[in-house]
Design a protein around this nucleic acid. Structure first.
Lengths: 126, 126
DNA sequence: AAATTAATGCAATTGGGTTGCAATTACAAA
DNA sequence: TTTGTAATTGCAACCCAATTGCATTAATTT
C-alpha cells in the first residue's frame, strides 16, 4: 500500500501536481522542494503516491524519470497507457489524452505500452 | 562520422549483433565482452556504430540503454521509428517490423517516436 | 498523554554512464 | 617495410540519479 499518513511533505509534493497539469522530472521536483525536504523523501513520496495511483511515472527522452498527475490517474488505472509528449526545445512534457492503436502482434501478449512522442510543443512551435 | 578504423574490439561487438537479431542492453554487452575490452570502449564503439547507422539505440523499460541491429538499419535511416517489444518474463527485447500510426496532435510537431510495448514474448507466452 | 510505527533526514553507497589523458594500434604515405 | 599521425583503447577518476541503513521525528491510535 502507498500513502498512510498525510504529512506536510506529502501535501507539498501533491500541491505541485495540483497546481499545474504538467509532468515533472524527479530532478526538477527535488529542486523545487529542496528547502523543505530531503531528496530521499521526495523519491519515497513519489513511490507512495504512484502506488496509490495519485500520480503515474514514465521515462523521459533524457533517461530521467518523470511523474504526472492526470485525468485518468487512479489506484485502479495503475498502468496508464496514454502517450506522452516531450518538447525538444523547452523540454516540457505533457500527457496526451489520446489512445494509440497498437496492432496485435502474433504470438505476443501486450500488457502495457510506453509511448513517448518527441517534437515541439504548442508554445515552441509558433 | 562514426567508425573509421576496423579494430578487433569493433569486430567483436559487431559480431554479437550479427549472430542473433536481438536487442542487447549496454550493461549486458559490457558483461559479454568484459574479458576482451574496457567498458568505456564498449560505450564508445556503440556510439560510433550508431552514428554509422549500423545499429540503433532506444531505452528499455528498466531505464537502461539498449542497442540493436535490424533490417532497416542504415546510415540514412538513422532515427528508426519502429516499436520495440520487451518481455516481462525473460526480459528479451525485439524490434517489431510494424508501423504504428500516430494521430497528428493539434499545434504540435512530432519529430520522432519512442514506442516500447511491454508484455510476454512468443516463448514466454506459451 | 503515551505508545506505536510510519515518515523523514542524513550519510554512505550503488550503478550506469562520461571524461581526461597517456599508451597503443590501424592505416596511409613514403 | 618502415615511419608518421591520428584514431582507438585502457585506466582511473569522476558525475549524477537513485537506493539503502539507521537513528530521529512526528502522525495516528489507544
Amino acid at each position: 500500500m502507498g500513502i498512510i499518513r498525510k504529512t506536510k511533505a506529502v501535501a507539498t509534493v501533491l500541491q505541485i501536481f495540483e497546481e499545474k497539469d504538467e509532468a515533472k522530472s524527479v530532478v526538477h521536483l527535488i529542486e523545487l522542494v529542496k528547502d523543505k525536504m530531503n531528496k530521499t523523501t521526495v523519491y519515497r513520496i513519489l513511490d507512495r503516491l504512484e502506488q496509490d495511483g495519485a500520480i503515474h511515472s514514465f521515462n523521459g527522452k533524457d533517461g530521467l524519470k518523470w511523474y504526472a498527475k492526470c485525468e485518468g490517474c487512479s489506484a485502479s488505472h495503475h498502468s496508464d497507457k496514454h502517450p506522452h509528449f516531450q518538447c525538444t526545445k523547452c523540454d516540457k512534457v505533457e500527457c496526451l489524452p489520446l489512445e494509440i492503436k497498437i496492432p496485435s502482434i502474433k504470438n505476443h501478449k501486450v500488457d502495457s505500452t510506453d509511448i513517448l512522442l518527441i517534437g515541439q510543443c504548442e508554445v515552441c512551435c509558433a
